[in-house]
Design a protein around this nucleic acid. Structure first.
Lengths: 261, 261
DNA sequence: AAGTGGTCTAGACCACTCG
DNA sequence: GAGTGGTCTAGACCACTTT
């Protein structure tokens, strides 16, 4: 057996040893967050390869001049992201990925935007209406009260992809049509200081009606992917209810699930 | 405007004061976890109502005889679940829910099982085959190598709902047909000591072929919801690849998204 | 100014895994 | 038995929100 003095670690830690983490105590960015970012970057760039052990937390904290809880907080945040796995008695290692990239739950931030295909949006309708029963229930307002209805047709490469119908509480947001066509609804909400917290989604399918087919440049009876979504801000109040239809021939939901331990 | 003097707290803390948390230091269950469970139960039963403040962490830790970090760990776990929201300078409050219940990412654990409709499963095929190119790519094995194919028809109330086709690395698991019909695939994996870590899913739609229609008791051309999924264990190795089709008339995916802060 | 959560420290002991 | 992560403590100072 090889000497353990500097070797058992040699197979796993050399990358780490040569990594220079630059921590700035003067920065307003928390130390654990600085460390987490630099670890993530190292994984991203392959400096830390899948399966590599990270070296124990005590050594790490000594080397970095941090306390162990701080180092743990950094590591834990990457475990939560699915980049690292901890095993008691073994160590912390980079997940044998396949995945890395699409870890964020997209589809809350406009689905097509994330697809990176330079989507175009045409606002078909943007006005106040009285809430119907289902809209009122979803938004938690009285039936018949004023809400904003927003209908958008989204295309990529000149071809329609989806028809989005959204309802928002009246006065929640300044829904400037030109800005809506230049960016996504969720981006506008964030800019307006609305912090999204959670959303409830139902994804189904059905065949296109004649009207829907005409709108989306499909044939009647073509398969459509449907989604209903209610989004809530961080106080738990509904900020948006939407009914979307997608051309199944041109779009599918693609996402990553992480299993909570 | 109402007086704010002594009211802001009076309306929020009484429920907590009367809560009796029973912490067992002899238990192998971590203290932070015991506390988190009891807080969750209190929220679940409405003892802590949406909007209620929790009282500051220092007081809580003193009252419970715990250190502040331990109390924070308990609270943080519920924040991660989306049950609580923290605001600096304000406090921690129960999220104005609407949601509470379906916070877990189901659809990893058998989708229909969770629906609570006493699903029935019929194993149509369960044997070894040579991996085709797409299956081999998904499972990370060589094309033509041995894998297990599993085809199941799932029904509720005597009506077919979905046709599930799965591929697994050969020898990963003892796929006993009777047990497969009595429980879900993921439950069998967990029992076998396989820890699921993440999954990549694509959800789409298409129209049923004649064969599919016959199998699912639909008409040709009916809308089907499709899902492809690759699941990974905690070392990042693929443990399952599946292609599923669902009758859109009888099934839809229903899930909750949490936005990471 | 007072109160809150956010961050950080420097230790301690335990439970688990592995050789 | 040696090494790892998991839990826990008792403090400290800071940034932010509200009065």
């Amino acid at each position: 057996m090889a000497k353990t003095g500097g070797y058992s670690r040699a197979a796993t830690a050399p990358a780490l040893g040569s990594l220079d983490f630059a921590l700035d105590r003067g920065s307003p960015v928390p130390l654990y967050y600085q460390l987490a970012q630099q670890l993530e970057a190292a994984i991203e760039h392959g400096v830390l390869a899948p399966g590599n052990l990270l070296g124990n937390e005590i050594d790490l904290s000594v080397r970095l001049g941090l306390s162990r809880p701080t180092v743990r907080q950094a590591i834990q945040s990457l475990v939560d992201k699915g980049l690292l796995v901890r095993r008691r008695g073994v160590g912390t290692q980079v997940v044998h990925s396949q995945v890395k990239r699409p870890l964020e739950l997209s589809s809350l931030y406009d689905d097509l935007e994330a697809a990176g295909q330079g989507p175009a949006t045409r606002v078909v309708r943007n006005e106040g209406v009285q809430a119907s029963a289902d809209v009122a229930a979803a938004l938690g307002v009285a039936e018949g009260s004023q809400v904003t209805i927003l209908e958008r047709l989204r295309s990529t490469h000149g071809q329609p992809v989806a028809f989005l119908c959204n309802y928002l509480p009246a006065g929640l947001l300044d829904l400037d049509t030109p800005r809506l066509e230049a960016t996504g609804l969720y981006r506008m909400m964030r800019t307006a200081g609305i912090t999204l917290h959670s959303a409830r989604q139902t994804v189904g399918a059905r065949c296109a009606t004649a009207d829907e087919a005409a709108l989306l440049d499909e044939q009647e009876g073509a398969a459509l992917l449907t989604m209903q979504r209610t989004a809530y801000d961080d106080t738990g109040r509904p900020v948006e209810y939407g009914t979307h239809i997608y051309r199944a021939s041109r779009y599918a939901f693609d996402f990553q699930l992480l299993v909570r331990p």
